[in-house]
């Protein structure tokens, strides 16, 4: 493994550049971004690779940072969960969404975990809007459950980060817009007794 290639930097990068590249990649492949995502294992591997490359170049022992933070549908500590639901979680992790939907529909007992697992199944099938509805119901039934809280906020957080990213890069502020803005600000200021731009 070439650590420079993994960190996407030149061979003669300084320690500061290495750290900056590492931080940028951690942000890109952070496990929190891959929650409820079938690619979480791939992202985990990538994160381990990045940590190993950083270790090789700095010797600062980053290995283990950000990796293995559990992004599959494992039972959370606070959830006692029945054997049925444990098996269903394993089936969801294996991608058996259609079978899980059938099993869940046949269950008459529907606690919060039932709604959460139904949401997880729909997320796997790509029925994102319905998945969000079921996650929200699970969260409403058990607001203190961190797993359900994270799931119900996942689409909102993902979209908020995406929109922030789009806005940061996407501003189309031409010189005409800047000048117009300043002239308008100056006019408003003068009408209130001040003077933003003295020469205008």
């Amino acid at each position: 493994m070439n650590p420079y290639t993994v960190l996407e930097i030149d061979d003669n990068a300084t320690q500061e550049q290495i750290k900056q590249a590492y931080r940028k990649l951690v942000k890109k492949y952070h496990p929190d971004k891959y929650i409820d995502n079938p690619l979480s294992k791939l992202a985990d591997e990538k994160m381990r690779e990045i940590n190993a490359a950083y270790d090789m170049l700095t010797g600062e022992g980053a290995s283990g940072n950000y990796a293995n933070q559990g992004t599959s549908y494992r039972s959370s500590g606070s959830n006692t969960g029945s054997t049925d639901f444990q098996k269903i979680r394993q089936m969801i992790n294996a991608g058996q969404y259609d079978q899980v939907m059938t099993i869940l529909d046949n269950l008459s007992n529907r606690p919060a975990e039932w709604y959460y697992l139904k949401g997880a199944c729909m997320m796997g099938k790509g029925w994102y809007a319905q998945a969000q509805n079921f996650y929200n119901m699970a969260y409403q039934m058990e607001p203190n459950n961190p797993e359900y809280q994270k799931a119900s906020q996942s689409m909102y957080n993902s979209n908020r980060n995406f929109n922030n990213q789009a806005n940061v890069g996407g501003s189309d502020c031409s010189m005409c817009n800047i000048c117009s803005c300043m002239l308008c600000s100056d006019c408003c200021c003068e009408s209130l007794g001040g003077d933003c731009i003295p020469c205008c």
């Binding site: 890109k28 492949y29 971004k33 891959y34 995502n37 690619l39 791939l42 992202a43 990538k46 994102y128 809007a129 969000q132 689409m155 993902s158 979209n159 980060n161 995406f162 929109n163």
Partner: peptide, 20 residues
Amino acid sequence: SQAQEVMTFALSRAQLAYNL
């Protein structure tokens, strides 16, 4: 409105997959 949210989410997921 829901479809617009789902579109944003699907595109963000596509970007996450593309990163790998």
